[in-house]
Amino acid sequence: MLSKKRLIPLAIVLVFMLSIIGCSQQQAQQTPAPPAAEQNKDVILATTTSTQDSGLLDVLIPDFEKQSGYKVKTVAVGTGAALTMGQKGEADVLLTHAPSQEKPLVESGAITNYQLVMHNDFIIVGPEKDPAGIKGAKSAAEAFKKINEKGALFISRGDNSGTHTMEKNLWKAAGITPVVSDKYQESGQGMGQTLTIAQQKDGYTLTDRATYLAQKKNLTLAILVEGEKSLLNIYHVAQVNPEKFPKVNAAGAKAFVEFMVSPATQKTIAEFKVQEFGQPLFYADAGKNEADLGK
């Protein structure tokens, strides 16, 4: 009888061990452990939420994995967080959209092989009634000034993302230092969530066009200011410098950068969801000069 009773804890331990083995095996299938001579097959991509929320990565990543044999671990955070990951060597490759934050990292040598990939633009959206009357404003800065003067509600990302960086630059251009109040609220969340909050609260917000179009089906917010050169939203890809961080997967990161600027990928980017929205979500820019964009 006793031996039967002892079987039960034994069975529990067995089940546990089996499930651990099952886990590690499945992992091994997903990311084949490379023989010592071979390279690491995992590439950690730190990127902004807009590339994931717009669905672009769902198209590009499988292509890259098929072509290169690498397995991409996409971590979609704000551009600020993605750059911090790069700065600490926690990621292998970055796809971000805040040139003013990226350039210092290039200069400090934290990232390398920094290349222009694509752009779209930021737009100021708000309630259709436009209580602050910003429609037709001459510049984004002027629109921000009007929102401030009229005391209309503005929802800020407030998360150091690329969009938030752009927004802070625009406030600076307008000569205003925004202070959190009931008229200037910070969501601290991704663009999709922030658009939903602006929609629910009848507020204005700054958004990238791709996320706005992807969310359009849920939104009544209207595009009120667009098309100005200062509103360009520029995406770069960069390798985290392997000389500074020996643990990064340099070969995989290099392959990803090359993939992003290759003619075939650029074509995919240019055609992405054009049919669905009747306009491009992203404009492919590889090889162009950043200063020439939007001309």
Binding site: Q52, D53, G55, V75, A76, Q189, L195, A214, Q215
Partner: peptide
Amino acid sequence: GGNIKGMTRVLTTATVMEVNKGNF
């Protein structure tokens, strides 16, 4: 986990992501 597709995407993180995408 990082909500990585096919690897660490579980039901809760997938739900958050779909909300962010506007796919309610």
